[in-house]
Simulated scan of single mutants.
Amino acid sequence: MTKRLYVDVHILQTVPPANLNRDDNGNPKEAYFGGKRRSRVSSQAWKRATRMHFAERCGPQDLATRTKRIAGQLAKRLQERTGIAAQDAERIAGAVLKPMGITAGKKAGDTAYLLFFGRRQLESIVGLVADDATDLSALEDKALEEAVAGLPVREQLQNGHPADVALFGRMVADIPGLNVDAATQVAHAISTHATELEFDYYTAVDDENTADETGAGMIGTIGFNSATLYRYATVGVHQLQENLGEDKAAIEAIDLFVDSFSRSMPTGYANSFAHRTRPSLVAVVVRTDQPVNLVSAYERPVPNGDGVVSASARRLADEYRTATRQWGDAPLLTAVCHTLGDDDADGTELAEAFGTNKTFPQLLDALKAALGAELDAR
């Protein structure tokens, strides 16, 4: 059995007035924690933001897409590669996918649910029929289905996973063989302090109003709040190795994830609030026992006042020191990058807990080196 190995990522990030992730009423999502209302950003929102950031580090062909339109995507690629008519490409794509038993959606050509698959995996499926596409397009529907029935289509989706499928997994309820266990768990981000929902009342003026016309052309409200968020995610390196099949690919995927998880931001109402910030603190911990979310540092909310992020950082450092001491933890690596003062009380407490302050590139390099050394030793 592969030994367990986890990379925990702890982030503190201050966000100005914003509506990063709205609820069914259009207001920022919230949660009660420690008996107080907190700002919340769902794990799904930040996972998508992270995946979208992947595109800045990887080419499109090295990533995955989540869509109901796998048949349409397959037909489009088949037509581009072979030059056959669009209608013929659609017939072949439908016949190729039919033996898999994917439940059809209400709209023609759609599946009943979103499928998460790699673009290279789709190209591999195209490769199974591309050379024979002209001959296949001449067959009647029944003969076409018989001709492609034995092709290893499912195997193309079971192997060669891109980093984002390997990290976030894939669930296909009616085809368990296509499931991929996620190597990554992402917590809902919550504010380290109590928050209150506020509303921005806005008006828009009609530019074509004449001098004697008054009043607004549009009136509305947007809910918002501002917060210092605690964000947490963990990557099971052993599961990632299984999903990707090699140590080097797993290390590169973790580097990609930590970089993108740290730099990404959900885009809800971005044009209205310009809320994009960078974290004040990123800490990584490599463990061999189990993931440890340090949100208990904020069960008692940080008082709203001067220096919320500084107080939050000290709380995090104290919680980490206490947890490692009381539970006898011995992490393989602890590293931190922060923008708080190195020489004041904040910097001293953070250094005692997480080590010397590093630049973010140095943190990523230290993480890769520690993982490489540990995997080489196994």
Score class of each variant (00 low, 15 high):
Lys3Phe: 06
Arg4Trp: 00
Tyr6Thr: 06
Tyr6Asn: 03
Val7Gln: 04
Asn19Lys: 03
Asn19Thr: 07
Leu20Gly: 11
Asn21Ala: 07
Arg22Cys: 03
Arg22Leu: 11
Asp23Cys: 09
Asp23Glu: 10
Lys29Ile: 07
Ala31His: 05
Arg37Pro: 04
Arg40Gln: 05
Val41Ser: 04
Ser42Glu: 01
Trp46Phe: 12
Lys47Gln: 13
Phe54His: 01
Gly59Thr: 12
Leu63Gln: 06
Arg66Lys: 07
Ala75Pro: 01
Arg77Thr: 05
Leu78Met: 08
Gln79Val: 14
Glu80Arg: 12
Ile84Gly: 07
Ala85Trp: 05
Ala89Val: 10
Ala93Cys: 07
Gly94Ile: 01
Ala95Asn: 12
Ile102Asn: 03
Lys107Gly: 00
Gly109Pro: 03
Thr111Tyr: 06
Tyr113Asp: 13
Leu115Ser: 03
Gln121Thr: 05
Ile125Lys: 11
Gly127Tyr: 08
Asp132Tyr: 01
Ala133Thr: 10
Ala133Phe: 08
Leu136Asn: 13
Leu139Gly: 10
Ala143Trp: 00
Leu144Lys: 05
Ala149Phe: 03
Val153Ile: 15
Gln156Met: 15
Asn159Cys: 04
Ala166His: 07
Gly169Met: 13
Arg170Met: 04
Met171Lys: 15
Asp174Asn: 15
Pro176Arg: 06
Pro176Ala: 06
Asn179Leu: 14
Thr184Arg: 08
Thr184Trp: 02
Thr184Asp: 06
Ile190Glu: 02
Ser191His: 07
Ser191Ala: 15
Glu196Ser: 13
Glu198Ile: 02
Phe199Ile: 02
Asp200Ile: 15
Tyr201Pro: 04
Val205Ala: 10
Asp206Phe: 01
Glu208Met: 15
Gly215Trp: 08
Gly217His: 07
Thr221Gly: 02
Phe224Asp: 00
Asn225Glu: 11
Asn225Ser: 12
Asn225Tyr: 11
Thr228His: 09
Tyr232Gly: 06
Ala233Thr: 10
Thr234Arg: 09
Leu240Thr: 06
Gln241Tyr: 04
Glu242Val: 09
Glu246Asn: 15
Ala249Ile: 02
Ala253His: 06
Ile254Phe: 08
Leu256Tyr: 01
Phe257Lys: 02
Asp259Pro: 00
Ser260Phe: 00
Thr267Trp: 03
Tyr269Leu: 08
Arg276Lys: 14
Ser280His: 04
Ser280Arg: 02
Val282Ala: 07
Val285Phe: 01
Val285Ile: 15
Val286Thr: 07
Gln290Asn: 05
Pro291Ile: 10
Leu294Ala: 10
Leu294Phe: 14
Val302Asn: 04
Pro303Tyr: 01
Val308Gly: 04
Val309Phe: 01
Ser312Ile: 09
Arg321Val: 09
Thr322Asp: 04
Trp327Val: 01
Gly328Lys: 05
Asp329Val: 13
Ala330Lys: 14
Leu333His: 02
Thr334Cys: 11
Leu340Tyr: 09
Asp344Thr: 08
Asp344Ala: 04
Glu349Asp: 11
Leu350Gln: 09
Leu350Phe: 04
Ala351Asp: 00
Glu352Tyr: 05
Ala353Gln: 13
Phe354Cys: 10
Thr356Arg: 13
Pro361Trp: 06
Leu363Gln: 06
Asp365Cys: 01
Ala366Asn: 09
Leu367Trp: 12
Lys368Pro: 03
Lys368Thr: 14
Ala370Met: 05
